[in-house]
Amino acid sequence: MTTAVIELQGVTFTYPGDIRALDNFTASFVRGRRTAVLGRNGSGKTTLFSLLNGLQRPQSGQILFDGRTIGYDRQSLLKLRQAVGMVFQDPDSQLFSACIYEDISFGPLNLGLPENEVRTRVERALTQMKLSGLENRPTHSLSFGQKKRACIAGVLAMQPQVLVLDEPFAGLDPVMAAEFSAILDELQRGGTTLIIATHDLDLAYAWADQVIVLQEGRLLADGAATEALVRPDVHAELGASPIVAEIAAVIALTGLDVYANGYLPRSRAELVKSIAAKTKGESTR
């Protein structure tokens, strides 16, 4: 059974100057799942994210966490921000200290935890993000990938149930991206709900269980990645379809059934494997 961890019901958010970022937006994020949020620049992704963690307050509509409407008083916000961790796109806007140990200790201290508990959590987050041994290096000497991991460590130390990441793979080289993906897998196995914003259709297709597509502040599509991302209206809005889906469809026209047994290749590797298995089957027949 699926339960929503965060639900938005008819949410409208307008910036000063009558700029409507979200318009009567309704969607829900399922607990324990990976959700990718897609949309063109200015479609409202950033606004949506800042609502999830209480950084902005909608003018109308409501947001539910765990079935309860979120409050905006100090205590409720602190609880919400503990439960919904937010990782920003640019690590330099998140890391405030030149020492990542200090930076990671910031969140748990804000939760009012005792020093020993905070230190344990910092150590754990450092190990989890493979940053051990780097805590004595200055932040400005770390690589982009290391800084990105430090940002996540700072959020993980608060032990959130939901992790919201804005463009987590942007700027990472393929090797770092693969490592990073493995880290996210591990977090999900641990029960964390993952929500990412991305422009990378292929990544969303391969990575996400659920996708939410925004169009000018409204919900365009909400559903399984394999279904929503191949819809014609989504293609028209985003300007492309996942390449794996397109290739698989073209190959299917030739009669080679890459979709056999309900198996849907989602990544390039899976597609190659599927084609290889099929062609081998054909030639031995």
Binding site: N53, L55, R74, L77, L78, R81, Q82, G85, M86, F88, F96, S97, C99, Y101, E102, D103, S105, F106, G107, L109, N110, L111, E115, V118, R119, V122, G154, V155, M158
Partner: peptide
């Protein structure tokens, strides 16, 4: 987003 109140708390 990480629960900043009015004081920058951190441990060295």
């Amino acid at each position: 987003a990480r629960g900043y109140g009015d004081e920058l708390l951190f441990l060295s």
